[in-house]
Amino acid sequence: MDTDRIFSISNDQEFEAISLEVFNYQVQHCQVYGRFVANLGINLDLVKDYKSIPYLPIEFFKSQTISCDSAVADEIFSSSGTSGMAQSQHLVKDISVYIESYRKAFQLFYGDIGKYAILALLPSYQEREGSSLIYMVNDFIGLSNQLKSGYFLYDHQSLHDTLTELKESKIPTLLIGVTYALLDFVDSHSIEFPELTVMETGGMKGKRKEILRTELHQILCKGFGVPVIHSEYGMTELLSQAYSKGGGIFHCPPWMKVITRDTNDPLSLLAHEQTGGINIIDLANINSCSFLATQDLGRTFHDGSFEILGRYDNSDIRGCNLLVQS
């Protein structure tokens, strides 16, 4: 599959046509997905649109090798996971596809990365190996033309001083941080920087009590002196990200789409504005599996945007491995 076609998608007709091509390719070349589809009894001749494509439970990345053919991976990304629990592993056969995906998506939503100072507050990601988020942020910092770009780990005073200097210099600034670390920062520091883009990546990582998104964003807006909080939605098993520029409403790049499924019947899809499980089509995942049923709950809207409302209480689907037994 020519990835130039994937990253040049401009309408639903092109998205559907390429989705069907990718589906047929992955059924043949991704052994786990092929067995999963076969054991569901799916008649491939009846898969005529992307809504008919079956979605692989994302939990398979914890127990199976989800890869097309057997090529050596350029990179292996892994999830953070709770201690003692299995981690997802994503074997990325061609890292250039991931790079193209996140660079094009950022350009689409925020413009030229080079004009931004990129500040990162991602301690839980920095302190482990195999984070796809750190890989992306490292590249963003490298592409930035601002000398103040970089990581701050737990040095909140240095971050505050840098934000103050960038505000005074009127340099466009993006602060990307894991949720608990941003909260830790505003517990001890505050700044009025209305032009700042604060982007939270989600997750308390067991560090703080979970709170509602509206409350979280109110606290962060007050602490940073910004009108809205931006958000990034991505995961180890994907090679694309969706972005929210406020209110927790996410938009996908043209090669990615979110659909909701019935929580009681995972093969049935829901209409817009109904709450259900989040299914994702990520066509950048050409070398693994592009059709994934996640553990998130949410709803979609008519313009293609979506909202995340929570997660399944027991997110590991018991016995799902039976569906890939030969």
Results as ranks from 00 to 15, higher is better:
residue 136 M to P: 13
residue 114 G to A: 10
residue 150 G to M: 13
residue 98 Y to E: 10
residue 102 Y to C: 09
residue 155 D to E: 08
residue 156 H to C: 04
residue 110 Y to F: 13
residue 141 I to E: 00
residue 165 E to W: 04
residue 132 S to T: 15
residue 164 T to S: 04
residue 86 A to E: 02
residue 162 T to A: 10
residue 122 L to K: 09
residue 152 F to I: 05
residue 156 H to F: 13
residue 136 M to K: 11
residue 87 Q to R: 10
residue 86 A to D: 14
residue 133 L to K: 09
residue 133 L to H: 05
residue 119 L to N: 01
residue 84 G to W: 12
residue 89 Q to E: 07
residue 137 V to H: 05
residue 103 R to C: 15
residue 98 Y to V: 12
residue 101 S to F: 15
residue 124 S to N: 11
residue 111 G to W: 08
residue 160 H to M: 06
residue 114 G to Q: 11
residue 147 L to A: 09
residue 167 K to G: 02
residue 94 D to G: 04
residue 144 S to F: 02
residue 116 Y to G: 10
residue 127 E to V: 08
residue 140 F to H: 13
residue 107 Q to A: 10
residue 91 L to M: 05
residue 155 D to W: 03
residue 109 F to D: 01
residue 138 N to K: 14
residue 84 G to E: 02
residue 161 D to G: 05
residue 144 S to V: 11
residue 123 P to T: 14
residue 121 L to C: 12
residue 136 M to G: 12
residue 93 K to L: 08
residue 88 S to F: 10
residue 120 A to C: 14
residue 121 L to T: 08
residue 132 S to M: 10
residue 107 Q to F: 12
residue 90 H to C: 08
residue 151 Y to Q: 02
residue 160 H to I: 03
residue 112 D to R: 08
residue 163 L to K: 07
residue 149 S to H: 05
residue 133 L to F: 14
residue 84 G to N: 04
residue 129 E to V: 09
residue 107 Q to G: 12
residue 143 L to N: 08
residue 94 D to R: 06
residue 97 V to Y: 00
residue 112 D to E: 15
residue 94 D to W: 07
residue 100 E to Y: 05
residue 120 A to L: 12
